[in-house]
Design a protein around this nucleic acid. Structure first.
Lengths: 238, 238
DNA sequence: GTAGAATTCAAACGCTCGTTTGAATTCCGG
DNA sequence: CCGGAATTCAAACGAGCGTTTGAATTCTAC
């Protein structure tokens, strides 16, 4: 009989159940990406994974915990890589300040590597991540905050040095905008097919995509804040 | 007995039922914003609106059609205003090209006006809109495409003139990034409370927010595309 | 005031959902 | 090869969902 829920399984049996757990995680990644959290049903998910319906609750506890496990599996290593890359660049720079470009690249390249590595989820996962950012479910928002706060804090300090013309608050907003453009782009929200005639070749070339995104973000980050004197004009539309 | 569904009601009875319809729309706006489409239940929605459960299906046909009605009510006038504002600026400029700033402001100001007008939904609606952008449900994506394509096409032509150094495809991507940063910002995704210490005063001052967003977007749009020669460096991280 | 249409209402339908259960099966160290 | 733990499995539970129904009520034009 199954335990009410196994708090921690023995090391060896973990390996035995890895197959089922992995199949669930892989199917969940695809389904959550395609339908979002709410619209994904455990019945469809488990049947796609070729496992019993009860397996999700047995191995992960609940649908919510499964969702978090899906995110953690990819996110932890990627953010770890981001931090390590930033620290390596800082070490290589000696005492000198890093350029905005380099800091931004340190953020983007682990994401790019992940997108290219099908064994780590590839583009599907980034799409899922982009959508998770916009999901209103509180448990998702809290989870993402917790997962990202360390990494973002590090980068914020680095950007603060590279962008001395921005105050802390101004920088906070700029990073918010960066995350917006980034997650929207990663999510591959072709919602706006408006921008339709993007060449098919372009569409799935993630490197080219980041190479288009990077100059946009760098220029946006470097931009001077709007001067007091110009603010009034803005609203009057003049 | 209720008609299977009233195709179009008489003019006068429209006014009579307006109260119920409006109450439903208002409650739906709030609930869809808070929980998203899937997680919003008609039972909760109708009870919040103080109307009978069946009223949604009677007046709107289905939950999906209600969602579209919620969006249309605000979106049509806002996009209309955007187009009119752009055309007014083009007329005022005579034959001369509009600046990137002016075109962008023509996009942002109707959104700002809407955000400030509580009678038109205010910030709630923009938040809902930002979230709708990221919703994976196909009917939402198709609906938004249809609603936006006209407006976006107009602006794309205007930007193409203002940004002659960008090709059509490059511009398409830039507008994609702009929409990303914009919808993410409008959605007020405080998911990333990481950027936590944003002053409370700041938080709901939409004008200040757009004044922070504008320089970021303008600089991003104006940025030169990444030169061929630099592309390789990017990925190697050097 | 009355006929007919529009609207409201309580109730129910049929379905899907996440989760739980307890027996059957598989796994594996001794 | 046996015993106990881990896992799988079919079945069911209870709840909530969007939608439909048909009667009751309200509105309105005549």
């Amino acid at each position: 009989m199954a335990a009410s829920r196994p708090a921690r399984k023995s090391v060896l049996t973990d390996a035995a159940s890895a197959d089922t757990k992995t199949r669930i995680l892989d199917a969940a990644e695809a389904q959550f990406m395609e339908h979002g959290f709410e619209a994904t049903s455990l019945r469809g998910l488990t049947s796609a994974a070729g496992v019993n319906l009860a397996a999700v609750n047995y191995h992960f506890g609940s649908k919510e915990e499964l969702f978090q496990a899906v995110l953690t599996r990819r996110l932890d290593p990627m953010n770890q890589e981001r931090i390590e890359l930033l620290e390596r660049l800082e070490r290589e720079a000696g005492g000198r300040a890093l350029s905005v470009e380099k800091i931004l690249f340190a953020m983007l390249i682990p994401a790019l590597r992940l997108a290219r590595d099908e064994r780590r989820g590839g583009k599907n996962f980034l799409k899922l991540l982009g959508r998770a950012y916009a999901d209103p479910a509180p448990f998702i928002r809290h989870f993402l905050s917790a997962q990202y706060s360390g990494m973002i804090g590090r980068y914020k300090e680095a950007f603060l040095v590279a962008l001395p013309h921005l105050g802390r608050q101004e920088l906070t907003w700029r990073l918010h905008f960066v995350m917006g453009a980034l997650s929207y782009t990663l999510a591959g929200t072709d919602a706006l097919k408006l921008f339709a005639q993007v060449a098919a070749a372009d569409k799935h070339d993630d490197e080219l995509l980041l190479q288009r995104l990077a100059p946009f973000l760098v220029a946006g980050l470097k931009a001077p804040p709007l001067a007091e004197s110009r603010k009034l004009e803005l609203v009057s539309g003049g």
